[in-house]
Design a protein around this nucleic acid. Sequence first.
DNA 1: CTCACCTCTCTACAGGACGTAGTACTACCC
DNA 2: GGGTAGTACTACGTCCTGTAGAGAGGTGAG
Lengths: 118, 118
Amino acid sequence: MKGLGELERSIMDILWAENAPLTAREVGRLIEDRDLAPTTVMTVLDRLSRKGFLTRTRDGRAWRYQPAASRDAYVAELMLEALDMTGDRDAALTRFARAVSGSEAEILLKALTELEEE
Amino acid sequence: MKGLGELERSIMDILWAENAPLTAREVGRLIEDRDLAPTTVMTVLDRLSRKGFLTRTRDGRAWRYQPAASRDAYVAELMLEALDMTGDRDAALTRFARAVSGSEAEILLKALTELEEE
DNA sequence: CTCACCTCTCTACAGGACGTAGTACTACCC
DNA sequence: GGGTAGTACTACGTCCTGTAGAGAGGTGAG
């Protein structure tokens, strides 16, 4: 999986936040801070769907875009990818476990113990 | 933190594997597969140290390079960085926990419970 | 019907990162 | 003193990303 650029991520953030599939125009409207040309938004949406991050379906002559995967799935995949980079996964995992803050450690712990119970 | 290119990562891998600081020539000798010009290796080592991934110290006229952080630390940091990207860290963590394979889940679990005991 | 407009697709371009390497200069060994 | 090793500086092609214009084709208002 490739990483995302800054604008690409902003746009993914918008689509992840929204629950409905959006058109390019709607996405453009939701990026207030930057004053982007409509074609810019379209181009980025197009690239994102070509990269597999977005799915699009026709709505009249417009496309509606929506994330192919949830943000959580994306983040988890990034984390696994990082983990794959190391020779010693155990060491990396241990270090990671120590680095997460307390409340998050609890979340992890809970998710893991639930797994075991299944 | 920025990501690494492919050659950059190969070189980091070599330096992470070796325990001693290496010179450019030594690194070059350890990359057999590719037939790289010595200057290529030097350039990449230089960029890596400028990016903060390597530390270098003089050894006569040559530089000796060594990783600024362990690979595990790097991997853990990448994972945390991915985690920072999400709005809902708990969801991402939960998903991550489900995605790691059984033996790794145990490693994580162990590291986490050890944390609690401290 | 016609014109303004929306949306699409295609094409383009600049800047940065990275892989790759040459050149020029210095210091050292034999 | 010439080959060797090492450095610093410069360079260039490629790919990715941000950014956007041009042109085509449908669509609603008047």
